[in-house]
Design a binder for these strands. Structure first.
Length: 623
RNA sequence: GGGGACGUAGCUCAAUUGGUUAGAGUACCGGACUGUCGAUCCGGUGGUUGCGGGUUCGAGUCCCGUCGUCCUCGCCA
């Protein structure tokens, strides 16, 4: 062992180590000169230890006085208790310090573009700067904690599935482009000029083939790649827990995921969450919450009032209904005085929320005493008002909001409005907001009372799981003027809907399910088609003639008639899981080296131009 | 492809209605200091206001263009 190598980590020393000579390796978080001592906080990912350089050790003292932040040190010294009354309750090593006897400066460090040290009241540097110097950003305590959490989550998953007999199997990255779904990232072949591999959007086809091969319980923590526009919760490459099982029905998959989810929350966060999770059919989710991934931490349900609106004299409502649209509303209980007229009128906060989804406007009424008021009230006869009040459960002080539009527009708009209202009216809070408030007050109190700060306690209700089931099998693609698979073309139809496949595809429901956590889609899967004839019918419906399907998926069609067992599975979006468990709303915060919003890596600069020679080898020319 | 927000010192931000030499905190450099711990105190360095053009006696501020970042609709089976 080299003489500078550590004997302990920076988070390890306690009173029991007093008197021992130890060697620590780490980074200088900060150093403070005060009279005859230089105090250096030495940091590694395990913690923080105070190292003291005394003035009588002249050479050491002089070097220590010159040291800057982020120098890399090896310090050998003696563990001693801190001076009485100077112990720190808020850090694990706070009862002791190390008196330096020898120092090796392993590396210097110039002042960095931004601070690695984090303070509660300090904004972190701009994200693009942090992404450019991601290796420095990753030194920050909060990111180290997130990546540690992510490791723990992966470990729980592997242990859990291994214990249940699942095999972790790998599938290729270089595959074949498939026509359905997202845009592929393509990889040109040097050997076959003009031909391309596609990076996988998911291991979907391979895992089905593994089932046919008899590996009846498979999983993989797999990277997936999709060349589509990004969002706060989307990256071009992301990680899925991919799972597939044979000889199972839907409830087997859901049950497995419930026990896995409970295990993750137990072992990562110490939380016991109730199982089984509630289930909601897709049609109900869209009708009552305006979303296929509703956040059920709060109520505020959407109510259809089309029939009642038809009895009013309000031409806006009546013309929408005549055109086949719907009128739906939300009763924001007790919110009549929470929004000003300027927030409600066209161009105001609330109408803006629905306009994003192409809704033509937002109508409203307020319940003042027994009366309904507002500009559209006059179009509603008393008898119709009474029906409206009953349908929406109106009480004095309520605010009623209505959208009249095509069904899909009304659902989307009211779904977004519901989320907006839930947040604005504080019907729910994200746990990290509660934690931030707790930490601020608790830290102050703890300092005053000279005691350790009590950590924020998570509660099971901070994590609201939900299954959404019974998705439609197909959706009509307006652009391409054809049916498109809602989930993917291998999703099995519900048995009782099979007869409608060719007569009424829009009515066919799929054996598909999504897992929703706090309004985020964190998983999705289905029971697959395991019969070639059904698969052929589906391809035909999707506008793929048999020989075309054979060209694209021939291997799968052959496999399906080579003894395919009934099978199904699911994929969990682990980045989103980690994001919610870590308490952030930005997926980049839980990925070590993420891409930016335009899918560029700001640190390496990728994607980038390549040498002309590389292009020539690949047979690629740009016009 | 559309909509929105933002871009000022290394970093985080301020700068009144278009008006003096663009400020503060922090970082950095120098000094003081016998138990500091986000030390404190004193002093100092640091600016192409993203870039280009325009309006004006005068532009960080207004206009046009452009680049970049984030959020979002479309898109993402």
């Amino acid at each position: 062992m080299a003489e500078w190598q550590r004997t302990h980590t920076c988070g390890e020393l306690r009173e029991s180590h007093v008197g021992q000579t130890v060697t620590l390796n780490g980074w200088v978080l900060i150093s403070r000169k005060f009279g005859n001592q230089v105090f250096v906080d030495l940091r590694d990912r395990y913690g923080l230890t105070q190292v003291v350089f005394e003035a009588d050790a002249e050479e050491l003292f002089k070097t220590a006085d010159r040291m800057g932040r982020e120098w890399v040190l090896s310090v050998t010294g003696v563990v001693r208790p801190r001076v009485e009354g100077k112990e720190r309750a808020d850090i694990a090593t706070g009862k002791v310090e190390v008196e330096a006897k020898a120092l090796t400066v392993l590396n210097h460090c110039p002042p960095l573009p931004f601070s690695v040290t984090e303070f509660p009241d300090e904004e972190p540097a701009n994200e693009d700067l942090r992404l450019q110097y991601r290796y420095l950003d990753l030194r920050r305590r909060s990111l180290q904690q997130v990546l540690t959490l992510r490791h723990r989550m992966n470990k729980v998953i592997r242990d859990h599935l291994d214990a249940k007999g699942f095999l972790e199997l790998e599938t290729p990255l270089l595959g074949k482009s498939t026509p359905e779904g997202a845009r592929d990232y393509l990889v040109p072949s040097r050997v076959f000029n003009g031909e391309f591999f596609a990076l996988p959007q998911s291991p979907q086809l391979y895992k089905q083939l593994l089932m046919i091969s008899g590996y009846d319980r498979y999983f993989q923590i797999a990277r997936c790649l999709r060349d589509e526009d990004l969002r706060a919760d989307r990256q071009p490459e992301f990680t899925q827990l991919d799972v597939e099982m044979s000889f199972v029905e839907r409830d087997d998959v859901l049950g497995l995921m419930e026990s896995l989810s409970a295990d993750i929350l137990q072992k990562c966060l110490g939380l016991t969450i109730p199982t089984p999770f509630p289930r909601l059919k897709y049609a109900d989710a869209v009708l009552r919450y305006g979303s296929d991934k509703p956040d059920l931490r709060f109520g505020l349900e959407i109510v259809d009032v089309s029939d009642i609106a038809g009895e009013s004299d309000f031409t806006v409502f009546k013309s929408v209904l005549a055109a086949g649209g719907v009128v739906r509303g939300i009763n924001a209980k007790g919110a009549a005085d929470k929004f000003s007229n300027s927030q409600l009128k066209p161009g105001g906060d609330l109408p803006k929320v629905v306009e994003v989804y192409k809704a033509k406007g937002l109508a409203w009424m307020k319940a003042e005493g027994d009366k309904l008021t507002g500009s559209i009230e006059k179009f509603f006869p008393d008898a119709v008002k009474a029906k409206l009040k009953e349908r929406l459960g109106v009480q004095p002080g309520d605010l009623l909001l209505f959208v009249a539009d095509k069904e899909a527009v009304a659902a989307d708009a009211l779904g977004a409005l519901r989320t907006h209202l839930g947040s604005a009216l504080k019907l729910y809070t994200n746990w990290w907001d509660e934690k931030a408030a707790w930490d601020a007050t608790e830290a102050a109190a703890a300092k005053k009372e000279k005691r350790p700060a009590r950590p924020f306690t998570l509660r099971p209700e901070h994590f609201n799981f939900l299954w959404v089931t019974d998705f439609p099998m197909f959706g009509w693609d307006e652009e391409e003027n054809r049916w498109a698979a809602m989930h993917h073309p291998f999703t099995g139809p519900m048995d009782e809907d099979v007869p409608h496949l060719e007569t009424n595809p829009g009515k066919v429901r799929a054996k598909a399910y999504d897992l929703v956590l706090n309004g985020y889609e964190v998983g999705g899967g289905s029971i697959r088609i395991h019969r070639q004839d059904v698969q052929n019918t589906v391809f035909k419906l999707l506008g793929m003639e048999l020989d075309e399907a054979k060209k694209r998926f021939g291997f799968l069609l052959d496999a399906l008639q080579s003894g395919a067992p009934p099978h199904g599975g699911i994929a969990l979006g682990l980045d989103r899981w980690c994001m919610i468990l870590a308490g952030t709303t930005n997926i980049r915060d839980v990925i070590a080296f993420p891409k930016n919003q335009k899918a560029r890596d700001l640190m390496t600069g990728a994607p980038a131009l390549v040498d002309a020679r590389q292009l020539r080898d690949l047979g690629i020319k740009f016009s």
